[in-house]
Write a protein that binds this DNA or RNA. Structure first.
Length: 601
RNA sequence: CGGGGUGUAGCUUAGCCUGGUAGAGCGCCUGGUUUGGGACCAGGAGGUCGCGAGUUCGAAUCUCGCCGCCCCGACCA
């Protein structure tokens, strides 16, 4: 972009800024809100094509390649085998799979005829958000013997998700780069082994990248499966809440988090007299029942919610003071569920929301219910108040054990900070995090549907036990920046910096300056660093600002003044102090610095 | 999908309320002076004011519709 002095010709190869492409910006584009998003653009790493769609410019692409390579190495070290599957999937694969209903609306549809004119007979395609529906049929066809198990396949490539709301640059994009892996084992023990091998590989990956990511217990969501960890980079702008206590080591995603609010040895309260109906005209909220003249504290009320699970209504009971953690309803096993509308509720219970209850004998059509699921914490109420299933009336002295038509108890409430940690009883805390990786022990959900089975040494067939694993590579790129920046720009960890060493030549018109630059670049490269030489005919201030903005870990400054004194300068991006090094010693010092940084990284 | 905002030069934006020649800074081009933390002077190029209708003698400005983008929520394999 900026011209170089054409007078100095250089023998051999040296990466020159003047001939490269790093479009830095002084000002942040208006549509970037958070630091990492602004820096991605200002430092010339990416440019936006459309909402959630980004071009990786040369520098951004280099970082992606480094992330990808580290990921590949750690996955292979963890025993996984790389392959590459298509991005375009026949819709048939998904229709046969277990989650078409839940997944279809966030999937891109690809039309083979173009222009939306696909004839009804022609095949339909989707863009793959993930690849269980492709890998499982493949393994079914290719692997039939226990001798070929276990296997763990991974790939690194582009994924598409029709995110409802893309945001924060690469943080939640429609098109993004992801590593996804799928393990196949003979049994649960093997699957657990594979799972923890991946957990270890993830930990190694994030450590090598130089980003702090913590593993937290997570909800399995639409994926199904039995247990799961998310890898979270702590950051204020993260989308997810992590509930944790550092002393006990407990850490869980908000959707999964539980607390020891209900003591394990809690004895249920005996009934406190007969159930009594009382008039509550116009009272349809917890707060209104809490107020005068009724004065029933929220933690003495039963909150009765009605949902529709796969078309059938079911009830969830919580304490009046608690919130439902909707994701926890996933444990009930419904394919899809949603809150029921008042119109759907009335025929079943006999009243509108605000007067609902699950007291035996008060529901109009209990046979229509798929179940009544009660949060554990209502046992703390013992005897409380709930709706009478008659608009304008409530019931008091309702006893949990005696009166409520509970199918089963579970954990459905949202945990609040300050509640006792389930491990140690210490108070729980909350912080925000960016989800950069996720591992699931899937079980046999997919292998059963797709018939991925193997024969054991007793000639018996069994479904393979699967696991699946994902790392958001492009999201990790941004998380690294979110975690590593200051007022001046990015502060790259050594391992993923686009170039680790910048040779900043302040007077590139001086042949001796460029000759020295070349010697230093060669020394740094020989020691194992990627080196860029800033030979632009810019003022020093511009070059320093750009160097800080882009965030090269090590900056070597060669200037006319320094040359007269016989010194160059060596400065680490993360540190304030500048070391003056005699020219004669410079190549050796630079090589030593590079080796040291590499050893630490 | 609901709520809020916004769209003017490559980027950041003023002008819009109260209709009448489209302005600035950065960046870019030319020349000169500068040269260790985003220099200065002079000159210059660059705009279908998101798109489409309407109101009006006249629309960046008012009205309606559409689209894009951003934020909050819902959602997030």
């Amino acid at each position: 972009m900026r011209r170089s002095f054409g007078t100095v010709s250089l023998p051999g190869f040296m990466k020159l800024w003047s001939q490269y492409f790093i479009p830095t910006l002084k000002e942040s584009p208006a549509d970037a809100e958070i630091a990492s998003h602004k820096l991605l653009i200002r430092a010339g790493l990416v440019r936006k094509l459309g909402g959630g769609l980004y071009t990786y410019l040369p520098l951004g692409h280099r970082v992606m390649q480094k992330l990808t390579q580290i990921c590949r190495e750690e996955m292979e070290r963890g025993g996984a085998i790389e392959l590459l599957m298509p991005l375009v999937h026949p819709a048939e694969n998904w229709q046969q799979g277990p989650r078409w209903a839940a997944a279809r609306e966030i999937m891109f549809r690809a039309d083979s005829a173009g222009d939306g004119k696909r004839a009804p007979r022609e095949p339909e395609f989707v863009l793959g958000p993930t690849h269980e529906e492709v890998i499982t049929p493949l393994v079914r066809a290719e692997i039939t013997s226990y001798r070929d198990l276990p296997k763990n396949f991974f790939q690194i490539g582009t994924k598409f998700r029709n995110e409802i709301r893309p945001r924060f640059g690469l943080m939640r994009a429609r098109e993004f780069v992801m590593m996804d892996a799928y393990s196949f084992d003979q049994n649960d023990d093997g699957a657990i082994k594979s799972y923890f091998a991946m957990k270890a590989a993830y930990e190694a990956f994030f450590r090598r990248v130089g980003v702090t990511a913590i593993a937290v217990e997570a909800d399995t969501g639409v994926m199904g499966g039995s247990f799961s960890h998310e890898f979270m980079v702590p950051a204020e702008i993260g989308d997810d809440d992590v509930i944790y206590n550092e002393e006990s080591g407990y850490a869980a995603n908000r959707e999964k988090a539980t607390s020891a609010l209900v003591p394990a040895d809690l004895k249920d309260a005996p009934p406190d007299g007969a159930v009594e109906k009382f008039a509550t005209p116009g009272v349809v909220t917890i707060a209104a029942l809490e107020a005068a003249p009724f004065g029933v504290p929220a933690d003495q009320q039963f909150k009765t919610l009605v949902y529709l699970g796969d078309g059938k209504p079911f009830i969830v009971i919580l304490r009046g003071c608690d919130e439902l953690e909707e994701a926890k309803l996933g444990a009930l096993g419904f394919g899809v569920f949603r809150p029921a509308t008042p119109e759907e509720i009335e025929p079943v219970l006999g009243a509108r929301p605000g007067s609902l209850g699950a007291v035996k004998g008060t529901m109009r059509n209990p046979g229509a219910l798929a179940g009544v699921f009660a949060d554990q914490a209502i046992r703390l109420i013992g005897n409380g108040v709930t709706g009478a299933n008659e608009d304008g009336f409530h019931l008091r002295r309702v006893n949990v054990v005696r009166d409520l038509a509970i199918t089963r108890f579970g954990d459905f409430r949202r945990v609040r900070p300050g509640e006792p940690d389930p491990k140690s009883g210490a108070p729980l805390k909350v912080r925000r995090g960016i989800e950069v990786g996720h591992i699931f022990k899937l079980g046999t959900k997919y292998s059963e549907v797709f018939g991925a089975a193997y024969m054991d040494d007793q000639k018996q067939n069994h479904p393979m036990v699967m696991g699946c694993y994902g790392i958001g590579i492009s999201r990790t790129l941004q998380a690294v920046i979110e975690q590593g920046h200051d007022q001046d720009g990015i502060v790259w960890p050594w391992a993923v910096a686009p170039y680790q060493v910048l040779v900043c030549v302040l007077d590139p018109q001086l042949p001796e300056a460029m000759t020295l630059a070349r010697a230093l670049a060669e020394a740094a490269e020989a020691a194992g660093a990627d080196v860029l030489v800033d030979d632009r005919a810019e003022r020093p201030g511009v070059k320093f600002k750009d160097a800080d903005l882009v965030g090269f870990p090590l900056r070597l400054t060669i200037g006319g003044k320094g040359l007269k004194e016989g010194i160059i300068e060596l400065k680490w991006r993360g540190q304030k102090d500048v070391a003056k090094v005699p020219v004669a010693e410079a190549p050796a010092r630079v090589a030593a610095a590079v080796r040291e940084a590499q050893a630490k990284a």
